[in-house]
Amino acid sequence: MPSPIYALFRNAILAEQQVLCTYDGRHRELCPHIIGTNRAGEEAVLAWQFAGESSGKLPQWRCLKLANVRNARARSGRWYEGGSHKTTQKCVTAIDLDINVHVRRLR
């Protein structure tokens, strides 16, 4: 059974909502794109971080283990898609939901 944080991120993808949260002690503002589990079977999300705190330049792609996410909430706002994919993502190996495959193709 998915965790409550997983459900929040999954619903945000379906509604194209931003997610605000704390991850690794830093405030993040994200648009989640792909959710599922990683190679270790942990809940994970690939998200475009467009604002907040970061150890590097923003915006950029982030791979988050959902067990490490704190104080998450979804909000309406501009949807950010991120830059081009130069390599195949390895964050989420068992994909449950991908905005480009499951959400946008249904429209």
Rank of each mutant, 00 (worst) to 15 (best):
W61F: 15
L58D: 11
Y80G: 07
Y23S: 05
C63N: 04
V92Q: 02
Q89A: 00
V92P: 02
R104Q: 13
R28H: 10
A40R: 13
A40T: 09
P59N: 06
R39A: 15
E42M: 05
T88G: 03
V103I: 15
A72M: 11
H102S: 06
K86M: 10
D96V: 14
V69T: 13
W48K: 04
E81H: 07
L58H: 09
C91R: 01
L64M: 15
D24N: 13
V101P: 02
Q89M: 00
T22C: 05
T87Q: 13
E81L: 06
A44K: 01
W79H: 08
D98F: 02
V45I: 14
I35G: 08
W79Y: 14
K86C: 07
T88A: 09
H27Q: 14
K90I: 00
I35Y: 07
R62T: 11
S84E: 13
L64W: 05
T37C: 07
R78M: 05
E81D: 10
N100H: 15
Q49P: 01
H102N: 13
V103N: 07
E53A: 13
Y80V: 05
R104D: 10
V103M: 08
L58A: 10
P59G: 06
L58T: 12
D96T: 15
N38H: 02
T22V: 15
H33Y: 07
N100T: 13
D96L: 04
L97M: 13
Q60M: 11
P32H: 07
G82M: 05
N100F: 13
R28C: 06
H85Q: 12
S84M: 11
N68E: 15
